[in-house]
Write a protein that binds this DNA or RNA. Structure first.
Length: 121
DNA sequence: TCCCTGACTGGTT
DNA sequence: AAACCAGCCAGGG
């Protein structure tokens, strides 16, 4: 381990905690997860964290995270994308012929947990 | 320890 | 609509 490696991986638990909050039948984007985890601008790291998941051990609904265009992101390892799509379809999410889902319909919109519930602009 | 590669994104061209 | 580009940062060679 290099000098201070312990610090960096604090992020993974934060990221997993957010992903676990995504309800069934809803999706979140990588950037959205990063922001909710307090890591704005670190969308790429969210992908990296999910890549590091061990499905045999972790109970993180990774399939509910898609890219900002409403598509399932391409993996280095083939064969996973169709599985992710099937899992989402099983939750009631619809994909168009081009393999995209409508974020305006299925994107998770968590309530803000603050005193002032909402002050719309 | 340097260098490169990613389950990404928003702004430009 | 598509290609490019600069940030982002953890791992592995």
């Amino acid at each position: 381990m290099s000098r201070r490696s312990a610090r960096g991986s604090d992020r993974y638990p934060r990221i997993y905690r957010v992903v676990r909050r995504i309800p069934r039948g809803r999706v979140a984007t990588y950037g959205q997860v990063a922001e909710l985890a307090g890591l704005p601008g670190c969308a790429r790291q969210v992908g990296y964290a999910l890549h590091a998941l061990d499905d045999a051990v972790d109970d993180v609904p990774w399939q509910r995270v898609v890219n900002a265009r409403g598509e399932i992101s391409r993996r280095a390892v083939a064969g996973i994308e169709p599985i992710q799509q099937q899992l989402l379809e099983a939750e009631g999410i619809a994909f168009d012929a081009r393999g995209r889902l409508d974020l305006t319909l299925f994107q998770w919109r968590p309530r803000v947990r603050k005193r002032n519930p909402e002050m719309r602009v």
